[in-house]
Design a protein around this nucleic acid. Structure first.
Lengths: 337, 337
DNA sequence: AGGTTGTTTGTTAGCGCTAACAATTGAGGT
DNA sequence: ACCTCAATTGTTAGCGCTAACAAACAACCT
């Protein structure tokens, strides 16, 4: 076979011989131990460079019981949010010298979560980042009694695990506040599936903001995040015309709503204002350009990894980190007629 | 610290003792070696289950020199296509008992590719799947002289490496054929950046199809894949009105074009037909719903992993696998006025 | 019975590394 | 000169596993 390495890779021993020291000294240099004289360190480093030595991770893991690998357990990786969160995790991990392994859930259930977690334990990961934005994820993980640290994205960190989240409730309140400021009184909400943590939090934020302003919170419909569901719901709303503004749970559903309104002759924003959530890159090119709530997913991912590193290396306890969303006002909102 | 496992995990030796056999016999059972009697096998399996034994990957890797890990080197992971390809790779990998490690490129360059590849070599991956759809990726990888198999997505597999690709040229020809069938004579193309393999292939397919039909291929503009660039180019096209149909390099740019046309009062499809590429989930909810070319990214990912497994386990040589795209006709195309 | 298979099990060594301890060196104080 | 202490280097063992070989055992033939 073409790839079975004919030439053996150099080991510590080889480097040691070349540098005229013991293999342990080489190990010290590699691992930046303090008590190595400058002269030796340089000699060893030269030998490392000459031989092109790279340390063997398997051997190291075997003895240290650390794989320097983080498992990211994710569903919906093809979506903008999770994909970017993963990117943030990967960036922070690689910068810190960690490897990132992934397991994608084909369907979200306690079983599939358990499968993926077992997969990671077999691999010997040092920690797990759960990027599964469903209620129930926490419980599904807790019963497994994993003995590695876990950071749950979207969790507010009540349980045994650490959490990292974007403040969804705040995001929803910002959206509603923006609409109220413009003078809207009848503000509806098209939410994501309520078994998603974020969907529930956004709905709650919407409800709270309305209640506090003394407005009714009866215009509520649940969608499934897809543009298709937004379209279907939008068609109904176009007929009813009960709200002057709609806060939609994500940009994709908002796209569907926009199309339904467009087809029905409901003008946005003259007749109805629409606010989305996420600010995916296309949102500025919808018709009309979408006012929405931006979440910094990459930052979220980086924070996850920071928490993980704290758990792993500083022995910190579980905690939570919160990223704030912000409004991006475009052309899909305006004062009511 | 909370997670340093107090209780030692069971090893082969522990299972062996419990089952009353040697550790090697347990190893044989674990690895499905043929010559183990049914009685022993059952006894061992019982012991494994009772102790909750899981094999130590590091130890195994150390001696076999196989990590059972595949590295996916990717850029643009937040895009629909690459993200779904990754999903396909992950699925096929996990089913085959492999782990998937990722390295995302923050910026595409020979250096960053080399960095990521080194990262994977440090980890000891068994193979690398390169999901970096730029021309130049192949060369950047080739000079590294990696001694693991590499599968390059988007490559037609000329070099030392295996390739897996969607037939982009075919996709472009399908799109153009569809427009020609409808009677269009002036068919423009908004392409992706020409240093992307796929963008170049789609442009070439467009050109070939036009030439074969005896039509002019002079209406060509290069975008950057983003909705914004599509918007900018769309604005110009709306003024010029040189083409009756535009084949756009991806759905996102098509979204921008649609908006530019909408704002300029150019009706789609009555005045100009628009075809996209990718068929991302939102394409059916654009205004109007977009006719586009569908690529099965997950299938592509699965095929990558299949090739990798063939290279790894059957000692097969480098090869190529091609996935065919297909037309999805919606409302953005119609015969010219 | 004795030899010749093949099947099943056990024994040994070592993959490449780090932790723990032991040994050596040099500086500084008496 | 001697002792003490710290800094630097070396030696040894073992992480948990599989490959290679060796041993034991049964079955089947002359």
């Amino acid at each position: 076979m073409a790839y079975s390495s004919e030439r053996r890779l150099p080991r510590l021993e080889d480097v040691a011989e070349r540098a005229g020291v013991s293999h342990q000294t080489v190990s010290r240099v590699i691992n930046n131990h303090p008590n190595v004289s400058k002269a030796t360190r340089e000699r060893v480093e030269a030998a490392v460079a000459e031989l092109g030595y790279r340390r063997n991770t398997a051997a190291r893991s075997l003895v240290t019981r650390r794989s320097h690998t983080i498992g990211v357990l994710a569903s919906e990786l093809s979506q903008y949010g999770p994909a970017n969160t993963l990117l943030g995790v990967e960036q922070a991990a690689r910068d810190a010298g960690y490897f990132v392994s992934i397991a994608a859930l084909r369907e979200v259930s306690a079983d599939s979560i358990a499968d993926a977690a077992r997969h990671f334990m077999d691999q010997g990961v040092d920690g797990i980042v759960a990027l599964v934005p469903h209620t129930g994820t926490l419980q599904a993980l807790e019963v497994l009694n994993l003995d590695v640290p876990v950071v749950v994205v979207g969790s507010s960190g009540e349980g045994r695990f650490s959490g990292a989240m974007v403040d969804q409730k705040l995001g929803a309140r910002l959206a509603v506040a923006h609409l109220i400021e413009q003078g809207h009184k009848r503000i509806g909400h098209i939410s994501g599936p309520q078994d998603w943590i974020d969907a529930a939090a956004r709905a709650e934020g919407w409800r709270e903001a309305l209640t506090e302003a003394g407005l009714a919170d009866d215009l509520f419909v649940e969608g499934d995040w897809s543009a298709g569901s937004g379209y279907g719901i939008g068609q109904k709303l176009a007929v009813e015309r009960s709200a002057t503004a709609v806060f939609v749970g994500n940009d994709q559903m908002a796209l569907g709503v926009l199309r339904a309104f467009g087809e029905a002759g409901v003008r946005v924003p003259q007749d109805v204002s629409v606010v989305g959530f996420d600010d995916q890159p296309e949102a500025g090119y919808f018709m009309p350009p979408l006012t929405t709530v931006r979440q910094d997913f990459e930052e979220l991912g980086r924070r996850c990894m920071d928490m993980m590193l704290a758990l792993l290396e500083d022995g910190a306890g579980a905690g939570t980190t919160v990223v704030n969303p912000r409004m991006v006002v475009r052309a899909s909102t305006a004062p009511p007629a």
